[in-house]
Design a protein around this nucleic acid. Structure first.
Lengths: 164, 164
DNA sequence: GCCAATTACTTGAAACCTAAAGAAATCTGG
DNA sequence: CCAGATTTCTTTAGGTTTCAAGTAATTGGC
């Protein structure tokens, strides 16, 4: 480590190990929690996480959404959504119809049965999550929310700068 | 909202929306960054994220690791590691041999070429990550590290309690 | 020594996921 | 109107991922 002309601590070459460790820790937390939720969904309701996530998106919008909307919100590819929706229509959880206004567009909604099943799962899911974060104080939660919001904004800016 | 006998704010039924929102935000951040890293690895080095992750694990341990070790560290299933390793051995990045002491065990290491390629990728990867977290102050980074450590511990405790 | 339990890994089936190419409908600028 | 660009969705190929079942080697109890 050396001191530059304005007496700030700097390193050559620049060292970014802290950010890397932060990223790995963030990833570990998410993987851990995601795995836990996945296990519980499977053993309790015999449902996969992607299906639960898709139903969660649809539960927020009773009038339904297009496949593109789902794709953007879930941050997964279009082709992925096509298959996921196919299986959930097949199992009776989703209702799917072509838009009258634009025949390219497919609008999907939860069926009555699908909604009922989702609500049941969501109620337990919320308790699992509360338990997972159980050792954090309300202040910790607020502070994490704030820092993750900042992280999200920073990451989006970085992604946008690359894509142009 | 009501006030209980000790004048603490409580809600009935208990409300865990804050934790749920925190989880969704954590997931959003990770998905966002992971997608960015995935894209950059593909376009810059034509390599997938799981392969990069596996090589990163091996780079830390020159003498090599067993498949089980890799499986635990990467938090993925054994079967997954088998296929991943197979393809990386095929492409010449990994060296694989059966342990003399225990013939059930497969020890894998980076080949010279594999290590060289990984180091090249890792150097850029570190810059990408630094850029992604670029808007966070050093204090933000420290604070996030602390809170995520606490989160990890809490989640592990919760998972352990369920599994018994 | 021997048998049962455990451990390490592989295999198989189904699902998930991406990127890229393709098909169909719509929009846009002459 | 109409040809080209764009949007929406599907398809395809190649990987990744899990879970569960299976195989092989080792360990531990007796």
């Amino acid at each position: 480590m050396i001191l530059d002309s304005e007496t700030k601590a700097v390193e050559l070459p620049e060292h970014h190990g802290d950010e890397l460790r932060l990223w790995l820790r963030l990833l570990t937390c998410t993987t851990l929690i995601e795995g836990e939720v996945r296990s519980r969904l499977r053993e309790r309701f015999d449902v996969t996480l992607p299906r639960f996530d898709l139903m969660a998106q649809l539960d927020k919008v009773p009038e339904g959404m297009t496949l593109s909307d789902v794709s953007k919100r879930m941050m997964v590819s279009n082709g992925n959504v096509t298959g996921l929706v196919e299986r959930l229509v097949e199992s009776g959880h989703l209702d799917r119809r072509t838009s009258d206004a634009d025949r390219r567009v497919q609008v999907i909604r939860l069926t009555k049965a699908g909604r009922a099943e989702f609500r049941k799962m969501a109620a337990e899911h919320e308790l699992w999550i509360a338990d997972v974060f159980g050792d954090l104080t309300p202040k910790d939660v607020r502070e994490l929310m704030r820092l993750l919001a900042k992280t999200k904004a920073s990451a989006q800016k970085s992604a946008k700068a690359r894509a142009g």
